[in-house]
Write a protein that binds this DNA or RNA. Structure first.
Lengths: 188, 188
DNA sequence: ACTATAGTAGACAAACCTGTCTACCCATGT
DNA sequence: ACATGGGTAGACAGGTTTGTCTACTATAGT
């Protein structure tokens, strides 16, 4: 609502994603957004609240971005190419909506949050569920097992691109996924 | 060397893996291992040194565990089953050597370390390279593209098992990987 | 016998964290 | 005319963090 709130949330997401939620403090966020500390605590009850809001914002942006990339696929092979070409753009910093690539915000945040924080884990898990649903529903010829394989490859490519700096991972997924698609739907 | 050093390192790895390197402090580690703070700083120059040592220990243990699981595969199909059954055991806490499952220590640690810490990033990356090499060399019929697909699926399954609690991910990888294998080596 | 090494317990410095609070400003609606 | 609510700047409390340091003990090598 208020535009200070939006300012704070944007700064928080950017900093949390680039440096990790544990590393970034409240003071850094208010300095980055040029807003008073009291204003932050007026809009968000605690740092954890702010993290949850940042996760939601990222979830929303990521889904919107991916949804656009997957629109109007004519065949499953099309969708495979669109999906992994989009990821390839992301890994190589050609998806400005998503910021400079630093792996998956949800995986990073889940790893950081002591497993004790169920709210954060929960939001990370439901993001993954939402992405899976989007991919599943975007296949012109429904095929749950292919959708499953695409999700697993997508996670693998994202972490490989980040941890090993393997920025070509998404491109190699195209061949793998096409092989699974061309093949008869594989145990039906 | 000294057995206090080993004690400290074991405690550090356990706590870092279960709660994240940022969350766990020096004081918690010495309390857990029952060792004086000065002793810790006698063996390790800083917390970062300790993190690096914990990463190395984990790397060594993980490779040894996986190496045992992949030994004596008679065919690529065999290896696929051995790999993902081993991962399945890990995800479902039947691999005691690896401790209670909480995702991949290297992915979690890389996400936490501000990208600014190149030593930590480096050690995480080289662990992944070592695992890839092990998998590649364990295939009875060498096939780099299959090895690549196995690595991507393995990463995807590990993060799905952790973030979404999808503990069956490894089992589903078996069918996917076998489909890739049965198929003619897919663009040779 | 002496000296270096590994060890204990814990106080301490210096920094940094979250969250609260005071004191003040400036719109806007009634 | 005035109260209310969003806003600023920054001090402050209370806690936690890493790393150092003192003072003391025990063991092992030369």
């Amino acid at each position: 609502m208020s535009d200070k709130r939006a300012l704070l949330l944007n700064s928080a997401l950017e900093l949390f994603y680039q440096k990790g939620t544990g590393t970034v403090g409240i003071n850094e966020i208010i300095a980055h957004s040029g807003v008073a500390k009291k204003t932050l605590y007026h809009h968000f009850g605690s740092k954890e609240d702010l993290i949850l809001a940042a996760l939601s914002l990222r979830d929303q942006r990521y889904l919107q971005w991916l949804n656009e990339k997957l629109a109007d696929a004519q065949s499953n092979a099309d969708l495979i190419k669109q999906l992994f070409n989009a990821l390839n753009d992301w890994f190589n910093d050609r998806a400005t909506e998503l910021g400079q690539f630093r792996g998956c915000f949800f995986i990073n945040t889940a790893g950081e949050s002591a497993t004790l924080d169920p709210q954060i884990m929960n939001r990370c898990a439901s993001h993954k569920v939402a992405v899976r649903r989007l991919i599943t529903n975007s296949l012109p010829q429904p095929n749950d097992r292919l959708a499953d394989a695409l999700c697993l490859l997508k996670e693998g490519a994202t972490t490989s691109a980040f941890v090993q700096g393997d920025k070509q991972a998404a491109l190699r997924c195209i061949d793998i996924a096409l092989a699974l698609d061309t093949q008869a739907p594989f145990s039906l």
